[in-house]
Design a protein around this nucleic acid. Structure first.
Lengths: 161, 161
DNA sequence: TTGTTTAAGGACATTAAATATCCTCAAGCA
DNA sequence: TGCTTGAGGATATTTAATGTCCTTAAACAA
């Protein structure tokens, strides 16, 4: 099991969009070029984010995407669930029902014990993703990335805005 | 992202093996029949468990598998990692290196912030899996499954032993 | 000794998902 | 009018998951 690349792309795109001047948009083309990923495919991920209400797009030249709400209101889980879906990483196939000793009519009072644990693990994963916001990463970049690179990057993004 | 079926099968097999009389073995054939899953494919999962030292097999008639150590010493994570692998569910492709404003020579002092969060979420997932043992589920079954079904099941397993 | 059973594991086929590309459409804008 | 944009449908390509088949060597019973 491995998460799709879309997750990484979408998260990085949100961080970039978080650094955008207010009211400005950045196009799929620019985001794809910045991250060196295929534009058409990245577009699918951005469409998912748009549908989830995380980013919003506008048409025409000078169009593109911007965050639909404050970066501090967008968690990693929001982004990952937009791309990856909300359903659990564990799919219980009710394998216990195949026990040849079970009466066909028997109804289980509780979900399968194995599934319960796997679902709790999935929830622990989501809980951690819920705890970090896009703004946290955007802020951390300001500390971790050397000033000159950060400056050039901001200029590049603004120029493509 | 969805975990493989192998995980569910392997976990349930371990629970069944945990209920085995001491020194007895249960064959792949019996485990496959019990869970109604394809024997040849289940065999691959069991081989993974065997290689990981979770179960051990022996040959010949009356051969099969048994737990290689106490069920209370086998965590869900042990089983899932045997089947699914130990590498993180998030693969960082170092997308930040593609930033056109970055000097080619620049060396990052820390791993990518996005990756760090994703890895921590992965670790939170594993931590939860580490917290439950095969014995926990085996014990819970004794409470949750009606006595007669449990009895018949034990008889079935013992008969195939 | 011989035949049957078993796990181990290699080779391969099938199926589903991830990745990627292409095309059309309508909205925005010069 | 013509170029840009995102939205989204259709389809191709690639990779992973699922499933099957076969051979080998060990265990065991007749």
């Amino acid at each position: 099991m491995i998460l799709k690349n879309q997750n990484e792309w979408a998260l990085h795109c949100c961080v970039v969009l978080a650094g955008l001047p207010p009211e400005r948009y950045l196009s799929t083309k620019a985001l794809a070029e910045f991250h060196a990923v295929p534009k058409e495919y990245l577009s699918k991920a951005l469409q998912s984010l748009s549908q989830a209400g995380i980013i919003e797009g506008t048409l025409g030249p000078s169009g593109g995407y911007r965050l639909a709400r404050k970066a501090s209101d967008i968690t990693f889980l929001d982004v990952v669930e937009a791309v990856e879906g909300k359903s659990s990483t564990f799919a219980c196939t009710e394998i216990r029902k195949n026990n040849p000793c079970r009466p066909a009519k028997y109804r289980d009072p509780k979900p399968c014990g194995v599934a319960r644990v796997m679902w709790e693990a999935d929830e622990a994963w989501r809980k951690r993703l819920r705890a970090t916001k896009v703004s946290d990463i955007a802020n951390a970049l300001a500390d971790e990335v050397p000033g000159d690179i950060l400056e050039k990057t901001t200029a590049w993004v603004t120029a493509h805005t």
